[in-house]
Design a protein around this nucleic acid. Structure first.
Lengths: 127, 127
DNA sequence: CATATAGGTATCTTTTAGTATACTAGGTAT
DNA sequence: ATACCTAGTATACTAAAAGATACCTATATG
């Protein structure tokens, strides 16, 4: 009973954060990117958040940070070997996620989306 | 480029919430549980949070809510058929999560844990 | 008549996550 | 001398998530 050994929370911990999924998406897609390239690819992110999310991914050894000691600075980010091992999990999540979206569309209709989730909650609540 | 079609965020949306993993863990393990049984199984959760997390899972058709019209009330929660389809994803997350924890232990030593993650961030930051 | 019961809701406070904006370093181009 | 560049940091603020606590419902029991 004590501590549930169901540790999918570990994966959640890596992925949680408003910008982590999209940061990972770009790094997985493009291989290696500079800080400024990531910024351009994700226009609404602030430097602070981009730095923060990258640091957390770096802590988990998902992302590698390569510093070129130049002026002006150059820093490149890429997925580590360990991080690449995560891709099957992400793929599994992605695949099931897609089918889940279809399922939700069947339940609630095409017009709904993951984003417009708040408004629908009361429907289920008020029954 | 536009909208990344990498939709593992959908799965995140279902699972994110401080108590969702443990709620799911108990429901997957025990099959069917009353509200009060969940409360007992997760002592630190408040009624408010338990209700909220269950409602969100219900919205996503992961959890089913069966109401017995009695006084005092009786409500049973269980994993839906659709929800059961999620178990392979959760298993994949769980498995990779375990190996990731080992990896982190190799990197940072045995004493660290997922929980004591804050304190370690500066180590990676300050290099 | 007061109390307990189960499964909640309502309201308020605290904590955490995210945003906005200004500032920095150090070398190069004007 | 001044402005510009990149990859940040620092500080202050706002929004969202979670916690604490009180209350509600209708029946059955003492």
């Amino acid at each position: 009973m004590e501590e549930p050994h169901c540790k999918f929370e570990t994966v959640l911990e890596i992925l949680v954060g408003k910008w982590k999924p999209i940061v990972l998406f770009h790094l997985f897609s493009n291989g290696t990117m500079r800080f400024s390239e990531l910024q351009k690819a994700i226009p609404d992110i602030t430097k602070k958040m981009l730095t923060q999310q990258l640091r957390e991914l770096e802590y988990h050894d998902i992302v590698h940070r390569k510093i070129y000691h130049q002026i002006p600075p150059k820093v490149e980010y890429s997925i580590t070997e360990h991080g690449k091992g995560m891709s099957t999990v992400l793929q599994a999540m992605n695949d099931w996620g897609m089918s889940h979206l279809n399922h939700l569309n069947e339940l609630y209709g095409e017009e709904r989306s993951v984003e417009s989730f708040e408004g629908r909650l009361d429907e289920v609540t008020g029954s």
